[in-house]
Design a protein around this nucleic acid. Structure first.
Lengths: 137, 137
DNA sequence: TATGCACCCTGTAGCAACTACAGGGTCAAG
DNA sequence: CTTGACCCTGTAGTTGCTACAGGGTGCATA
């Protein structure tokens, strides 16, 4: 299939597909006589793997490792589990951080009673960390 | 104060301070005879405002708008409230998205029983979206 | 007096993970 | 035979910094 079909089949931007090839995440496909890229089903499923992993927040480098593992079926599955578990922990940390941030923002936004900027509690709170109830970031 | 002192006073990287000046977020300070930047307390509190807002996840452009508002005390506070409220909504959406992602990852990780990559449920799940219980991203 | 060291300067390039052109070639339908 | 959809390469932009390279300044110590 041509790049446009692969794009539609996987919901991936054409430029992104070429980008993945450039960085070596997708193998370079065969070319037609007109120098068009010609993809196989193997390409399609590899790209699906990449996109799905990206949607789940894995970095390109993590995906590279996961692809290496899946390319070699004899390899130890524990490595894949380690990558996924580490990533899960990062996601959990990010959620906690955002939750703290949300609480702080809720507090700040709740204090706005309208009026002019000179009396704005939002601006005041942003200017002074001491208004915060818990550390964020 | 010199840039190093401002850096320590606000916990901001020196390169970041110069970057903020370059993009017009911090006004260019006076210079000493040796061409060193010389900051006032007004600079310090403006930088604190910027850093605190960044910690809360506001983008540079949002901060620019918030600074414009705080520079003009006669302006309507509602604009600041709108920016903060919109940002809060984004944070809440991001939290929900990450929570869905965490659930999916938890499901995937939980299926790994060790063994070889050919039978790895982690890799299998990443390769096929149909293993997912809920849509993510 | 020299010299070492911490600090400052400018300008440019790099990071992640794309996205968006510019400027060109290919191919099938009407 | 031309219109339009598609494809190609190569480069530059995005966000918010961070990291040099290659130089100048200022003060304390040997």
């Amino acid at each position: 299939m041509k790049i446009g079909e692969l794009s539609r089949a996987t919901g991936t931007n054409i430029e992104t597909i070429r980008y993945y090839e450039r960085i070596g995440l997708l193998p370079a496909p065969d070319r037609t006589a007109a120098n068009y890229r010609s993809y196989s089903d193997a390409h399609r499923s590899r790209l699906s793997f990449v996109r799905h992993s990206r949607e789940l927040g894995f970095t390109i480098e993590e995906i590279r490792s996961l692809l290496d593992l899946s390319d070699d079926p004899a390899r130890d599955c524990a490595a894949a589990d380690r990558i996924a578990t580490a990533h899960l922990e990062q996601v959990e940390q990010k959620i906690e951080q955002l939750a703290r941030l949300r609480d702080e923002l809720t507090r700040i936004v709740g204090r706005c009673r309208g009026g002019i900027a000179a009396d704005c509690r939002v601006i005041e709170a942003l200017g002074d960390h001491r208004h915060c109830e818990s550390p964020h970031v």
